[in-house]
Computed example of a mutant assay.
Amino acid sequence: MVHKSKKYYDLVAYKVGRFHDAINTTVHFFVLDNIFIDSAQPTTKKIFIEVAKKYKPEYCLLTHYHEDHAGNTYDLKKLFNTKIFAHNLSVSYLENGYKMLPYEKIIWGVPEKFSPDFIYSDKVEIGKYAFNVIHTPGHSVDSVSLIETIRGWLFTGDLFISAKPKYLRRDENIYTILESLKKLLNYDFDVMFCAHRGIVDEKPKELISKKIEYIEELIDKVKKLYEKGYSAKKIRNKLLGFEDITSFATNFDFSKLNIVKSVLSN
Score class of each variant (00 low, 15 high):
residue 54 K to S: 04
residue 127 G to F: 11
residue 117 D to K: 10
residue 164 K to T: 13
residue 155 F to E: 02
residue 12 V to M: 13
residue 249 A to C: 07
residue 166 K to R: 15
residue 102 P to M: 03
residue 105 K to C: 00
residue 217 E to S: 12
residue 34 N to Q: 14
residue 50 E to C: 04
residue 236 R to F: 00
residue 11 L to R: 02
residue 88 N to I: 14
residue 244 D to M: 10
residue 253 D to C: 06
residue 65 Y to R: 01
residue 126 I to W: 12
residue 256 K to L: 00
residue 206 E to G: 03
residue 22 A to V: 05
residue 152 G to T: 13
residue 87 H to E: 14
residue 224 K to Q: 11
residue 97 G to K: 10
residue 262 S to C: 06
residue 220 D to Q: 12
residue 54 K to W: 00
residue 139 H to Y: 15
residue 152 G to C: 07
residue 94 L to C: 12
residue 242 F to K: 11
residue 111 P to W: 03
residue 35 I to T: 14
residue 235 I to D: 00
residue 205 K to M: 11
residue 14 Y to M: 09
residue 166 K to T: 14
residue 20 H to N: 02
residue 108 W to M: 04
residue 141 V to C: 08
residue 18 R to C: 04
residue 249 A to L: 13
residue 8 Y to T: 10
residue 99 K to R: 13
residue 180 S to V: 15
residue 122 D to W: 01
residue 110 V to W: 04
residue 35 I to S: 04
residue 56 K to G: 04
residue 213 E to N: 14
residue 167 Y to E: 08
residue 158 D to M: 10
residue 56 K to D: 04
residue 58 E to L: 09
residue 232 A to T: 06
residue 84 I to H: 09
residue 250 T to I: 03
residue 136 T to A: 08
residue 163 A to V: 11
residue 72 N to H: 05
residue 42 P to D: 09
residue 162 S to T: 15
residue 218 L to Y: 07
residue 152 G to Y: 08
residue 257 L to R: 00
residue 3 H to I: 11
residue 103 Y to L: 02
residue 24 N to D: 12
residue 48 F to Q: 01
residue 116 P to D: 08
residue 47 I to H: 00
residue 190 D to L: 09
residue 231 S to Q: 05
residue 113 K to V: 01
residue 47 I to K: 03
residue 156 T to D: 13
residue 159 L to R: 02
residue 74 Y to I: 07
residue 29 F to C: 08
residue 17 G to F: 01
residue 191 V to T: 11
residue 4 K to I: 00
residue 161 I to E: 07
residue 82 T to I: 10
residue 266 N to D: 07
residue 72 N to E: 10
residue 174 I to K: 01
residue 64 H to D: 14
residue 153 W to N: 05
residue 167 Y to V: 05
residue 12 V to D: 07
residue 206 E to W: 08
residue 190 D to C: 02
residue 95 E to Q: 14
residue 86 A to N: 06
residue 196 H to Y: 03
residue 109 G to L: 05
